[in-house]
Every structure is written in structure tokens, then in C-alpha cells.
Amino acid sequence: MSTVNKQPAMFQMLGGLGRWCLQSIEKFGDAAVLSAISLAHLFKRPWQGKHFMLQMYALGVGSLIIMAITGAFTGMVLALQGYYTLAKFGSESLLGSGVALSILRELGPVLGALMFVGRAGSSITAEIGIMRVTEQLDALQMMAINPHARVILPRIIATTLALPLLVSLFDVIGLAASYVVGVELLGVNAGAFTGEMVAKVIPMDLYAGWLKALVFGFLVGVICTYMGYRAEPTTEGVAQATTQAVVVSSVSILILDYVLSSIFL
């Protein structure tokens, strides 16, 4: 258009904001509908057990190594930082409980989920997006295979179930690594370290961590499958969708983490 827009900048900005909100709500609804339709196939034949297995393998087993590495280094750095802070007050013996509570309640589920988004979530969006571009989704339709049941459902279920398992592994490795740094390297009393750890952790901490992981896993599955499925069927479309899937998932995880934490504490 060659007309010069005479609207004041303020109105344009407000209009843009309004439009953005409406689009976001529309997308949110669309994603909810898409995943609801897909999840409905959970109760319908044919079962997608084999495809769920394959997704567990690709998404769950595939993320093991990155989870182990992030878990180990998170535990190590927590022990190191915690030690120097606590040493100022002469309460190094609290190191075990401090590390354990931070990992179990927050860092395990949140960092684990963020790494999972980068490793598994992006690959989900990219894969489904490419299936869209190369008409594989249409090809499935033409071969009387429902893409909701075959492509979306197994991925959502796999992310939902895999993330709590991965986060638990993250937790255990993180705790072990913090023990190594705290006790073996920095010389905190082994008994104080583990004793404090055991004494301060209550079952609710564990439940909260697992529930977070479960919710985040589901969220990653829903967002990333939606982004891929609704990707613009071009190369840039898929690239954009992948970036967006990672950004939206990560931000949602952080926001939802605050909400869940405020409920559980």
C-alpha cells in the first residue's frame, strides 16, 4: 500500500498489541483443540503402541546423555557455589540439604525441561514440519492413516512420560555429583552432607518435582507438535516454527514453574 498511515503511533502500538493478543488466544485455542483431538485417539483403536515406543526411544533415550551431563554439572556447580556462600556463615553442614532441595524442587524439573525442549522439542517440531512440507502428512491421510493418532498422539504421550523419568535421572546424577564435589573435593563432612540431605527432604518435595516434570513434559509435547503441525509449509516456515516452539515452550515452562511452585510451597 502506498498510503501513508496517519494513525498516531500510540494507536498503532495498541492495535498491534491487541492483534497479537487475539492471535495468541486463537493459537492457544487451536493448539488445545488439536491436542484434544489427538488425545481422544488414546481410547480408540488401532493402538499406537509401537509408535509410542519409537518416540520414547527417539525423545527419551535420545535425551539421556544431555540430561546426565547437565545434571552432573548442575549438581557440581551448586555444591561449589553453595559451599563458598555457606562457609561464610560457618554452616557448610547445610550444603547437602541446600543442594538437594534446589535440585529436587526447581533445577531438576526446570533445567531438565529446558534441555528437553532444546533436544527433543525442537526435533519434534522440525520433524512434523518437514512432514508437512514434503506432504508426508497428506500421504498418511491418503493411506487412511490418521496423522493425529499416528504422529501427534505418540509424541505427546512420550514427552509426558519420558520427562519425569529423565528428570529423576537428572536429580540422582545431580545429587551424586554434588556429593563428589562437596564431600570429596571440598571436604564437607560426609555424614553431615547426607544426613542433612535426608533430614530436610520431605515427600512433598519429590512429588512436586515429579508433578512439575509431568506437566512440563505434556506442555512440551503439546506446543511442539502443534507448532510443527501448523507450520507454514515452506523451509522458512519450518525454521520459524522450530524457533518459536523452543521459545514458547521455554517461556511457558518458566511461567508455569512459578505458578506450580507457588501452589506447592
Binding site: 527419551g60 533415550v61 540422582v172
Partner: peptide
């Protein structure tokens, strides 16, 4: 492999449940 993965995950969970959460 998926079986092993699930087993390792469940073991981690139960280890934490028994040792830490008691």
C-alpha cells in the same frame, strides 16, 4: 532399550523416594 530407559528412570525415582523422601 526403551525398557532399560524406563527401568533406570523408575529406579532413580524409587531411590529418591526411599532414601530421601523416606
Amino acid at each position: 532399550i526403551v525398557g532399560i530407559f524406563v527401568l533406570v528412570g523408575v529406579l532413580s525415582m524409587s531411590w529418591m523416594a526411599i532414601k530421601l523422601g523416606q
